[in-house]
């Protein structure tokens, strides 16, 4: 598929007939699961603990692989053509995914190279991102000295160094202060305005309401609801996402997948 074909794709992510179970564990996580996320959408994936959000995110990013069904990122099948598919997306995991012994500049240089960028481009993007995410002053300090908020911003910067067209975000603002959350959410909106598809999962429902225009609610590996957020709120006569969440997934505890 050439550059033109990639640009004309309607869906950023297509999950078709997905089946998955963890090896050695009883029960199936997903069975004939389908989901489509349109290009340039701000998509939120929600559900109680153990609903399968992180598993689905890991399947979409190729961290886990399934024998049943297909997952395509901008038309490239993650299983068969993973090197091409990986060029299109960025991933911001929940855990800090960088080298704490390195500075933000060094981390961005390394992950930039691994994302397929070259010297000049890496330096340009590094300067831009450090500026946008307010890390310029600490660009040469080892990340292990950083606060949680600074680490979150660096975690995000690495995920977008190569200007991905689809960005997967797993709890990108967990454990940060209001200012950092505000900065991150604004930056994500800015990215989306420039055409980046956001696939977001979080337990921060107020933040999700602000960020997402379309959501999917999951429970026990199945989609409970999937539509425009405003439409779902109106349909279920709820004022906020939290009420909608409890209405659709119940008030019992969710159990993390062990």
């Amino acid at each position: 598929m050439n550059q033109h074909d990639e640009q004309t794709e309607t869906f950023a992510v297509e999950v078709e007939d997905l089946g998955f179970s963890y090896p050695g564990q009883p029960g199936r996580y997903f069975s004939h699961f389908n989901l489509k996320i349109a290009v340039a959408e701000r998509f939120g994936l929600f559900g109680p603990n153990g609903a399968g959000k992180t598993t689905l995110l890991h399947l979409m990013t190729g961290l886990l692989s399934s024998r049943e069904g297909t997952i395509r990122i901008l038309g490239k099948e993650i299983k068969k053509d993973n090197q091409s598919a990986r060029r299109f997306f960025g991933f911001v995991p929940q855990d800090f995914s960088f080298y704490e012994e390195l500075s933000p500049r060094e981390n961005l240089e390394f992950f930039g190279a691994w994302s397929g960028l070259k010297g000049v481009e890496i330096r340009k993007r590094t300067t831009e991102l450090l500026e946008i995410l307010d890390l310029t002053d600490v660009r040469d300090k080892q990340a292990q000295q950083f606060s949680g908020g600074m680490k979150r911003r660096l975690n995000l910067a690495i995920g977008v160094i190569h200007q991905p067209r689809v960005l997967f975000l797993d709890e990108p603002t967990v454990g940060v202060d209001v200012q950092t959350r505000y900065a991150i959410v604004n930056y994500l909106k800015e990215l989306n305005r420039k055409g980046t598809t956001l696939v977001y999962t979080s337990h921060q429902l107020a933040e999700a309401e602000e960020l997402c225009e379309k959501i999917a609610l999951m429970d026990k590996g199945t989609l409970v609801a999937h539509d425009d957020l405003q439409k779902l709120l109106a349909e279920h006569r709820q004022e906020g996402l939290e009420g909608l969440f409890l209405t659709l997934t119940g008030k019992n505890y969710g159990n993390d997948h062990v």
Binding site: Q83, F91, P93, S97, F98, G116, I158
Partner: peptide, 13 residues
Amino acid sequence: LNGSFIRLKTLPT
């Protein structure tokens, strides 16, 4: 074991 490995596995390298 640390987080960087997860990210490395999602990159085109």
